[in-house]
Design a protein around this nucleic acid. Structure first.
Lengths: 233, 233
DNA sequence: ATATCTCATATTGTATACGATCTATGAGAA
DNA sequence: TTCTCATAGATCGTATACAATATGAGATAT
């Protein structure tokens, strides 16, 4: 395996937050993405201070980061809350994701190597096994890795950065979908990924772009439905 | 004039930073965008504390925001520096701008009203006058407003937000161009804007998208040249 | 009973104090 | 002369203390 490919594959886990700010941000981000913190939950700085054993300074700085990431909203002298996505928010997020992933596709479709195809094949297989076991957290993780690997192949740091932000928001929304649609067919993602990978192998950009659009619009629809359900419940 | 249009036009000036953090961030951002702070300049928290008459806390928080915006880079225990754009950075920034503006075009091209066309006409004329006077700062401001108005018509908050970030970085780079190419023909922008506006009026999306791409690639090339000049100087 | 006002409490915004780390400088040895 | 290493100064990271603001409970008037 080439050094480039390896670093690409590892780019999710190799990140190590040096300062407390980033560590705290990662903790809160995980809590939101994994659904332990729910939309509109009040994030009280003093509580995190106690729970994490750090002072308010890094906690506050972490919350600033998360607000920039669109996972948290803050109001002056009232505090920070887990962002509650409106149907319009969800539509916007998924439409932006489509735009970014189509841009990535345009950049890489003629440059992907067999090694990279193989890695994507393996990820699909791993996700299939995670679904068989029923490990939802693992399913989500591999799913994200599939798309992240593709986007990171572009080596377009700005694109990768913006995509990561969007996807973090999407994962927060996917938890709402999981609550609203308990028996969601996770194998849909497998079929989607196979179709995407096939389009890449065929180097068929138009098909790939409409695939991206259709998939994202379908999932967006599911999430909008879920958000509306939650609002009326 | 419709209420929607009015709020759209005013959306640049109506922002009012309530807390010190945002005020400090705005000050530093302006300094970078206007070229008073140059790439690689060391931003020392204590100096800003003294100059602005606030404590280090809001200064630090502002620097975190600016790092997220891609205008500042920070190294642990070494400090924050005005970001120095590499040629690759410049290419990435402009290619992302193209993607975002083409997305905006797709969203709005069939929905723009005569009022909005008129406003864009007025902005072009205002920019022409600013060029005649030679007010570079005003030229830049109106130029940004032209594009911002278009993007904001999409009412896609995520798109608008990402676009604003990108454009702040571009403005920082444009100052490098101004230093490298002192007698730059500012009327180029007028011709570009007229062509863009005309494509919108014709509702000709393909032409508009290739226009966007060509213009951004041309300006990107000028900026890459300028960045390379600076590096070798 | 309802509405409105007052004030205590909780929470955030800001300032300051302390600790950790980097960088440059200079003395001493090879 | 040049290299190494210790030390001091500068700067950032974190913790704590104080100030400003929002919220809600209870009192009071209608």
């Amino acid at each position: 395996m080439s050094a480039y490919l390896k670093s690409n594959i590892m780019s999710f886990s190799q990140i190590q937050a040096s300062n407390l700010r980033d560590q705290v941000a990662d903790q809160i981000r995980s809590a939101i993405i994994e659904g332990r913190l729910r939309p509109n939950d009040h994030i009280v700085e003093a509580e995190l201070t106690a729970q994490l054993g750090v002072s308010r300074t890094p906690v506050r700085e972490a919350l600033i980061l998360l607000e920039q990431d669109g996972l948290v909203v803050s109001y002056p002298y009232r505090g920070s809350f887990v962002r509650n996505f409106t149907p319009q928010d969800v539509k916007d997020i998924f439409s932006m994701r489509t735009v970014l992933e189509n841009f990535a596709a345009e950049l890489i479709i003629d440059r992907l190597t067999n090694e990279e195809y193989n890695h994507l094949d393996q990820l699909i297989e791993a996700q299939r096994q995670a679904i068989a076991i029923g490990d939802l957290r693992q399913i989500r993780s591999i799913d994200m890795n599939f798309h992240h690997f593709i986007v990171s192949c572009s080596q377009h740091s700005l694109l990768i950065r913006n995509w990561k932000q969007i996807v973090a928001q999407i994962f927060a929304v996917l938890h709402i979908r999981a609550w609203a649609i308990p028996n969601y067919d996770e194998y849909k993602a497998i079929r989607d990924h196979l179709a995407i990978l096939n389009a890449y192998k065929q180097r068929d950009l138009p098909t790939l772009m409409s695939l991206n659009r259709e998939i994202n619009e379908r999932v967006a629809g599911e999430c909008v439905y879920s958000v509306e359900q939650k609002g009326s419940a």
